[in-house]
Amino acid sequence: MSKTLLDIKNLHAEIEEEGKAILKGLSLTVKAGEVHAIMGPNGAGKSTLASVVSGKDGYEITEGSIEMDGADILELDPDERAKEGLFLAFQYPVEIPGVSNINFLRTALNEIKEYRGEEQISAKDFMAMVREKSSIVELDPKLASRSVNEGFSGGEKKRNEIFQMAMLEPKVAILDETDSGLDIDALRIVAAGVNKLKNENNAVILITHYQRLLDYIVPDFVHVLADGKIVKTGDKTLALELEEKGYDWLNAEA
């Protein structure tokens, strides 16, 4: 049996400032080699889930647990979670003027390597890796060396997220609406990139609105997140059903 990479149990989270509960008892188990899709209406809490799992400030976990590879990660800082092998492709990638995409990735990679007790990567090997990985998502290498996301088009930003994923080779990748705003060609490129990166030792969680992405990255499980919980889980046919009927029938069912 393949091992569990991410185990979320009965997760309750609220926004610290307002005390507003967003996640209300969410459970999700992800094993190595799996692709999970999480779908759900706007405002259901999908991005909040991604933020909470990656350790963003501003949320209070009132109940439940999150384990990665068998270890509790709730006390870890976001960078430590990344060093343990978690990756988040942001729904809205941040523009960071003056910080070069390449330089910060090299800093990140070397910090991760240091954490794991591995050797630092040489400048030469790093550049070779940049060339190889940027070609996976057909990201212009020139973009790779510009300031992080600055002046990138919507599609370029999303490709840059997957490029970073390729560079960091995470165990668990959460892709938050990486498909939104992409035209069909860009969607194909991004999906092909993700398919190339997934293997039996890692796992991918796709957060999406649309079934469309799932034609290209075929999920093992489809979950519906509504009002802070997983309300239904099925296989890829569930996505088609959701596309056809929307989310309202689930409320009726529940």
Binding site: A82, I96, V99, F104, T107, A108
Partner: peptide
């Protein structure tokens, strides 16, 4: 400093 940018960099494995 922009907190969102700090989080973005942290999410890539860079300490705060």
């Amino acid at each position: 400093l922009d907190d969102e940018a700090i989080f973005y960099l942290q999410a890539r494995g860079i300490s705060k």
